[in-house]
């Protein structure tokens, strides 16, 4: 059709204020899934300092000579921003798991009429767990 009008992408994400629960659940699930994949690589990179440590490599941390693995991990954990990111990672993982369980129920055809409520429940529970985790994650780190 040449003589017609295509409204383009504005129809999709330009309308985000009008999205319903199921749509948000989908967006968040995609986002958190890919964040977890991203973290997986970071995780592997950090933990592989154990290989260097096994080879006898050492480093200086707060004036002390420690092995590469201990130094890398303690160095990261002493950073405030890393602790904040850990809280974020927990939030992302918890939401992905809870909503993942919701999606499995949807796949099995269980409770489809409550799909919006179960999404809100996942959100609230994620919030609660995240907040409850803050004291643990932030223990012993200064700004």
């Amino acid at each position: 059709m040449s003589q017609s009008y295509n409204r383009g992408l504005i129809e999709d994400f330009g309308r985000w204020k009008e999205f319903s629960a199921g749509m948000w659940a989908w967006i968040f699930h995609k986002f958190t899934g890919w964040m977890l994949i991203g973290y997986l690589f970071t995780h592997i990179a950090v933990l592989s300092s154990a290989i260097a440590a096994a080879d006898g490599q050492t480093m200086m941390l707060a004036g002390e000579q420690v092995d590469a693995y201990t130094g890398t991990l303690q160095g990261l954990e002493s950073l405030f921003i890393v602790r904040v990111l850990e809280v974020g990672l927990l939030a992302v993982a918890v939401f992905h798991i809870l909503n993942g369980v919701r999606l499995l129920m949807v796949d099995l055809g269980v409770g489809l009429t409550a799909q919006d409520k179960s999404f809100y429940a996942s959100l609230v529970l994620t919030g609660v767990i995240t907040v409850a985790s803050v004291p643990t994650f932030m223990a012993g780190v200064g700004l």
Binding site: S20, G22, M23, A25, W26, Q115, D116
Partner: peptide
């Protein structure tokens, strides 16, 4: 992808 938009 079970977005439920159609059902809504």
């Amino acid at each position: 992808q079970t977005q439920f938009s159609c059902t809504e």
